[in-house]
Amino acid sequence: MDIPYTVELRPDTGLYNAKVGIWLFLASEVMLFGALFSAYILLRVGAPEGYWPHGWLNVPLGTANTLVLITSSITTVLAWVSLKANQFGRFKLFHAITLLCALVFVGIKSFEYHDKFVHYEFTLKNGKFADGHMVENKLKQDGNSFTGYAVIRGHVVEDERELYDLNAHKAPAHEDIRIDGAQIAKMGNYGPWHNTYTAIYFTLTGLHALHVIGGAIVIGFLWGPGSKLWETDPERFTNRIEISGLFWHFVDLIWIFLFPVLYLL
């Protein structure tokens, strides 16, 4: 006995097996991201007045990435439509664009990550805060004391909260600032450890990026070596494209929420 309903639809449910499988899987993904979104809300609501960041991320890049993912979603669905219409060549073309979009997305994302890792905040011994991108780092740390110096391109503020709401406080012109080790009380870059906002930002987008990469690998396989199945079992292949497409749309859907929540609000 072979396993039934791998390709044909089961009469009473009207579904083939993989369709049920992928939706169950997506249901669990909803709960996964749901828990992380709950964490986001909780951390945000729990942050002391004035200490939840606004405007820390690059909105043009985020917007670009949103458009990239939306585009990849339409090409994914068109790739599937092409197979339905028996146009294998167009399928190849559309999914090539999907893969390209995935690549662009990950590229932009890594650029944004990099930008956060070279962005430093210094708590100075005079109670002020220096903040900016590292230009030259000649600091040496020994316990809690620093020697050497660093040059950053940024600004110095009196109240740390000015660093948090970048939409409200228009930052003064950025200039190169030299900071001596002796001035520094504490320093750190904007990695996940910086505060709860960067923590949830890196976790949510990191997990999302893993989904993008995973999805791209699957689609890439189906586009390349996996597409041989088209010749022997076109219906099954079309189903696979539909299933991987469902996953891809879901990844897009998550981003549609991540973008405003992390970049805009």
Binding site: L24, S28, A39, P192, T196, A199, F202, L207
Partner: peptide, 25 residues
């Protein structure tokens, strides 16, 4: 299992971040 485990998976990822990336979830 399907619907209750993912939140723990999310929590485990956050605890992992706390442990290795020194976040403060």
């Amino acid at each position: 299992l399907l619907l209750a485990f993912p939140p723990l998976e999310a929590a485990a990822l956050m605890q992992l971040m706390d442990k290795v990336a020194h976040t403060s979830f």
